[in-house]
């Protein structure tokens, strides 16, 4: 069907507005991180300019703590991702293949509990974490991040495993394969899309999380978003150029990952929400 010309024009205007809305704040910040201080708030901003790495160099020399925090973020994110992916693949397999009242009840519990606001549990957990000497450690954040994603991720894994014909793993079991072998040679290879999707969700969440890091870390285990937030609320005034450099370094790797894994993110969200 041919569209009237004015509809096409409106469509292009709408498309441009969407792209501007989504991409422009990011573009402005990344560009500003490459500008000298005096040009950052210049209006109208230059889109063509000679980039300088002065802000990045200053970040490196004046805020070495940021790079420690990046390393903390990497460790915590990898830990939480591993814990979540392994535990939700195991559980997703069981929920997909076996059924009884106890399992159905526990699956329902899993869905209800995922609704609760995370801030609530900081109240009783804070003293417990302190009493156990776990405040400001990687372990607390790894466990908390994993806990808030195992529910969704188990559900997504169940949906992906549901699509694998049962005959495949049942035949393997009849032939005497152990559950470990069934998982390793049948389930995991055939649900790899789901594994990538669930890993991406928890990875992005853990990399970006603010509330728990804010409450449960004070120095040693601080994550990158927390250090950026401290730079933002610095009493000495905000050093915008350095702040942009830090935010860009935190954001660009995860953006590349999300764009590369776009198709899995979309598939996982669709399956997880529509069938959940």
């Amino acid at each position: 069907m041919r569209r009237p010309w004015w509809i096409s024009v409106l469509r292009y205007i709408a498309l441009a507005a969407i792209l501007l809305w989504s991409g422009f704040p990011i573009l402005l910040m990344v560009m500003a991180s490459l500008k000298p201080d005096r040009e950052i708030f210049k209006f109208p901003p230059d889109f063509i300019f000679r980039p300088t790495f002065a802000n990045y160099i200053e970040l490196f020399t004046s805020r070495p703590a940021f790079f420690d925090a990046l390393l903390n973020s990497i460790i915590i994110t990898l830990g939480a991702t591993l814990l979540t992916v392994v535990s939700s693949t195991l559980a997703g397999y069981i929920y997909s293949r076996y059924r009884n009242t106890a399992l159905a009840g526990s699956a329902f519990f899993m869905i209800v509990i995922r609704m609760l606001p995370p801030i609530i549990i900081t109240l009783p957990l804070f003293p417990v974490v302190n009493a156990l000497g776990l405040q400001d450690t990687y372990l607390v954040l790894i466990v908390l991040y994993a806990t808030f994603f195992v529910s969704l991720n188990t559900w997504i894994m169940k949906a992906f495993i549901d699509q694998i014909p049962r005959e495949l793993d049942e035949a393997a079991i009849v032939d005497g394969a152990s559950t470990v072998k069934v998982l390793r040679y049948v389930i995991v290879p055939l649900s790899i899309q789901g594994i990538i999707a669930t890993a991406t969700f928890v990875f992005v969440f853990s990399w970006n999380e603010f509330l728990f890091a804010f409450i449960f870390t004070t120095s040693k285990a601080k994550t990158a978003p927390l250090v950026i937030s401290e730079m933002l609320s610095s009493l000495a005034g905000i050093d915008w150029g350095v702040l942009f450099a830090a935010a860009t370094l935190q954001f660009v790797p995860i953006m590349v990952l999300v764009v590369m894994l776009q198709r899995f993110v979309v598939a996982g969200l669709t399956v997880g929400s529509v069938k959940g």
């Binding site: 704040p25 970006n208 603010f210 954001f251 776009q262 993110v265």
Partner: peptide, 16 residues
């Protein structure tokens, strides 16, 4: 491009 803000954390969004 539509998906990119999903990769941004709250702190960086406030910065932007």
């Amino acid at each position: 491009i539509l998906l990119v803000p999903y990769a941004v954390n709250e702190v960086t969004a406030v910065v932007m």
